[in-house]
Design a protein around this nucleic acid. Structure first.
Length: 897
DNA sequence: GCAAGGTC
């Protein structure tokens, strides 16, 4: 007699191991604990294809391994974030999963065969290979097989066991690629953003809870999600309401209490004279004739069985709970055995489910028992329709045990359980039936209509109080050919509305349509937006992006790196991954292509980091408040003089730096290269023109958006990079003279400057006044190599507890000082500097959309109601500011308000 | 301290 074959079976989670064991063994299982806390062992015997198997069934907890960088790349400051695109990565079992690993190893040693019962999707296939790696490590001779099943029902499971196959390497590879892409771009951009911004701003003004220094994370699901919220907000802000007119007719039958309203067949007209004319014709001939009375039976079908996302979308709306809380409560209900597995894409019940028996568990309930009984006895029963989705691993969410509400359940938990039960019972019910009547009338050749609905059988609606059928039940009895005079005949005015603010239901639906996240993670991604302070939720439970959220999206827009946040980012990654899963492309090829592309985007973003700082600074009205002058910031904006020279030259209006700065005098700068720094005479006197390759060249760099892209040493990013030297900037300016745009720009700036503006605004050697407090500026410095384009100034106002110490962009300062030359940040993009020029022009301060403008996409459209209409992508252009009516900036940045 | 995906 041959010995039985010992088989190790592994499922993705303990509940599935238990369920499959129960079914395969015909309820003849022995259970014991293992060294893994949640992953017990189920023992039973099984016969397949004439072989006797000793089965031990255990489980893992989702992924066993995590992808991580090699240790030298783990420290945030230990390497440049850009290195993370080439850094070595490896898969390891994290500490909290090592007991799961040990359990597998112990069982694998004594078995001849390994059967993988992981969920039949890509992630499941990948987890299968993780399990194989661990088991084969201790038992290389293991015979490895995969069980493929469609549902946890006896027929499918026995078939799977008798038809074992090999695991699918393509699917597993696709997941490996996704993991690596996600890790490299997530970690690199998160470190980049966080290290750049974390210490530069006063985050106390933001609603970040107890967090003093935020983590400004980036993720290929996080940013597209943020993008959806920002897009909607910007569409709403850009909406320009348009008036329209419509004819309102109502009729009141003699003994009816309420009048019945008719809708104009033309709905509405945007042309007032035309609407008035038609209205006047009606007024002259107000007798209406009933043209047609039509009646027909209507059915309203019950909802499909609940998938995870449907549960979230509906429950967040009907119960007004965040998706994240819904998932947490559903998980608790599942673990306590009251509902089925809550993470499922399936919205159709497999044939093997005895749904009427499940309904039978609920007949005792005072609230829905009678309806459940009607399903059991067949008078209400109709097999649920399916929505066409099946993840082949889990049934739709349904109650598995009756409860009237346990004592320790919070109110929300009771409401969610009730929702799940009612949804299930509704899905198993007959459709509602009604009779709809439509009446069409004519008045002076204008058509109007109305309809009424009589609900005849409520059926599923009886057990599902979350929605009604609506309709109009006060339709008067009208006959064809009948004539009447209207109770009301009015010309009414309306106005177009912006799109609604984004609700959680809408956001989940949008994420689903763009393939952002999975059923199990969508709620987490939304929660992360809130936790990171990118998005806020208002009292109506709708989302609005924070200043930070808008700045992040705005910055990548201005960098021309829109693919980093547009909603289809995730979908594009998924597309490529799917090619790997199909076997059409290799993992290596897709990985290399993706990593290269994102690496290029990363380098571009790094080069244009000034735009990111600028967007955040502009959104934070208080500006940057550094604890002290950075040691590297040592030169005057005007003349590059050292601070010492500056202080000496500024004469009576200056104060000792140490006194004004809490005693932290900055270090003197290193000796200027080639004697490049000049004395402070120009600014000290304020009368001489500022000859300034020093400043001009910097300004050139600042105004370089969209030009000179063939200059390898010139940043094409609108801001000179930190490493840009005076020398190279000078070179750029010299080259610029020979060209159209660049030369024009250079000349334009030469007409006026930051320095001139200061001089002009004061007309003397004194420093200008602080634009915030009107007080004398004690100190002013900017445009150093380390902080290009920036300007720090102080006045005596004790607003910050000592002295007002503020940060501004040089051209922002220029504009506030009335310096007409300030075109620095936007270069040749039509940005008017100064107060006069700035008004009425596209792209004034804070317009933040120079990238689009620079590509000649300033066609905002007549009404600009949609960003999409202007530039072809949803947030690609802009509309007119709704405060001042001038296009090119958002109302919140309105310079004219 | 970072992603997203499993799951408890």
């Amino acid at each position: 007699m041959s010995r039985a074959c010992k088989v190790l079976n592994v499922a993705e989670k303990p509940s599935v191991a238990k369920e499959i064991s129960k079914i395969l063994s015909n309820n003849n299982v022995r259970y014991s604990q293992s060294c893994a806390r949640y992953n017990g062992l189920h023992y039973f015997a099984y016969n397949a294809n004439g072989t006797h198997y000793d089965m031990v069934f255990t489980s893992v907890l989702g992924h066993l391994m995590e992808l991580e960088f090699d240790s030298r790349y783990k420290k945030w400051r230990g390497c440049s974030p850009a290195e993370l695109y080439n850094a070595a990565v490896s898969k390891r079992v994290p500490p909290d999963k090592q007991d799961v690993q040990r359990n597998l190893e112990q069982q694998a040693r004594g078995c001849q065969k390994l059967v993988l019962w992981l969920d039949c999707d890509r992630e499941g296939e990948n987890i299968a290979f993780e399990v194989i790696e661990v088991c084969k490590h201790v038992n290389p001779r293991l015979d490895v097989r995969r069980a493929r099943f469609s549902a946890l029902i006896p027929r499918d499971l026995h078939t799977a066991m008798n038809n074992l196959i090999l695991p699918n390497q393509h699917d597993a590879n696709a997941v490996d690629a996704r993991q690596e892409i996600d890790l490299r771009i997530g970690a690199s951009f998160t470190r980049f953003q966080t290290l750049l911004l974390q210490d530069r701003f006063d985050w106390s003004t933001m609603d970040l809870g107890d967090v003093e220094k935020p983590i400004i994370s980036y993720g290929p699901c996080q940013f597209p999600t943020l993008g959806l919220v920002v897009q909607r907000a910007w569409e709403i802000e850009a909406h320009v309401s348009e008036p329209f007119w419509y004819i309102h007719v109502s009729y009141k039958a003699p003994k009816e209490p309420k009048a019945c309203d008719f809708t104009w067949d033309r709905a509405r007209l945007f042309d007032h004279p035309a609407a008035t004319m038609l209205y006047e014709i009606c007024v002259e001939n107000p007798r209406a004739t009933v043209l047609k009375v039509e009646g027909r039976e209507r059915k309203r079908w019950p909802p499909f069985p609940l998938s995870t996302l449907e549960m979230q979308k509906k429950a967040t709306m009907y119960l007004r709970m965040p998706g994240e809380r819904i998932m947490k409560l559903a998980e608790e209900l599942y673990q306590a055995g009251f509902i089925s597995y809550p993470r499922t894409e399936t919205d159709i019940f497999a044939q093997g489910f005895d749904l009427q028996a499940m309904a039978g568990e609920h007949t005792q309930d005072a609230r829905w028992g009678r309806h459940a009984q009607a399903i059991v006895d067949g008078s209400m029963w109709l097999r649920p329709r399916g929505g066409g989705h099946d993840d082949k691993a889990h049934p739709p969410i349904h109650p598995t045990k009756y409860s009237a509400g346990e004592n320790d359940w919070a109110q929300d938990k009771k409401r969610l359980y009730e929702f799940i039960v009612r949804s299930f019972l509704a899905a198993c019910s007959k459709p509602a039936i009604g009779f709809e009547t439509t009446v069409r009338i004519a008045m002076a050749d204008e058509g109007f209509h109305t309809s009424g609905l009589m609900v005849q059988e409520r059926n599923w609606l009886e057990v599902y109080p979350f929605t009604g059928w609506g309709g109009n039940d006060n339709l008067p009895p009208l006959q064809e050919g009948q004539q009447f005079l209207p109770a009301d005949l009015l010309l009414k005015q309306g106005a177009t509305q912006p799109p609604p603010r984004l609700s959680e239901r809408d956001l989940i639906a949008l994420m689903e349509s763009f393939g952002i996240g999975t059923d199990a993670t969508v709620a987490d991604h939304i929660q992360k937006q809130l936790d990171r302070g990118y998005v806020h939720k208002d009292s109506n439970l709708t989302f609005w992006p924070s200043d930070l959220g808008q700045a992040l999206v705005g910055a990548y827009r201005r960098m021309d790196l829109e693919n980093l946040w547009l909603p289809d980012l995730r979908g594009k990654i998924e597309q490529n991954i799917t090619a790997v899963a199909r076997g059409a492309r290799t993992k290596e090829a897709v990985l290399q292509e993706a990593v290269q592309a994102f690496h290029a985007d990363f380098l571009a973003a790094q080069q244009k980091q000034g735009l990111l700082e600028a967007e955040v600074a502009l959104r934070f009205r208080r500006g940057l408040i550094p604890p002290e002058f950075p040691p590297s910031l040592t030169a005057c904006v005007v003349c590059d003089a050292t601070l010492q020279a500056l202080l000496a030259a500024c004469g009576p209006s200056s104060r000792p730096q140490a006194a004004a700065n809490g005693g932290n005098a900055p270090r003197p700068p290193p000796a200027p290269p080639g004697g490049g720094r000049r004395g402070c005479t120009a600014r000290g006197g304020g009368r001489q023109p500022p000859p300034g390759p020093g400043w001009q060249s910097r300004r050139h760099g600042a105004g370089n958006v969209g030009g000179n892209d063939d200059d390898s040493d010139d940043n094409d990013n609108g801001w000179p990079g930190p490493s840009q030297s005076t020398q190279s900037a000078r070179g750029a300016q010299a080259r610029g003279r020979g060209r159209g745009i660049a030369a024009t720009r250079a000349r334009g700036r030469a007409r006026g400057s930051f320095a001139q503006g200061l001089g002009a605004s004061q007309g003397s050697g004194a420093l200008p006044r602080c634009p915030m407090h009107g007080l004398e500026v004690l100190h002013l410095t900017s445009n150093t190599a380390a902080n290009p384009g920036r300007c720090y100034y102080k006045c005596a106002h004790p607003s910050e507890g000592h002295a007002c110490l503020r940060f501004k962009w040089v051209d922002e300062w220029d504009a506030e000082m009335g310096n007409s030359s300030a075109g620095g940040r936007h270069g040749n993009l039509g940005r008017g500097g100064g107060r006069q020029a700035g008004r009425g022009q596209a792209g004034n301060r804070g317009c933040g959309h120079s990238a689009a403008a620079g590509r000649g996409q300033e066609n905002w459209g007549a009404h600009g109601n949609s960003f999409a209409s202007a530039t072809g992508h949803p947030a690609g252009g802009g509309g007119a500011c709704f405060k001042c009516g001038v296009p090119g900036h958002f109302a919140r940045d309105c310079p004219n308000a």
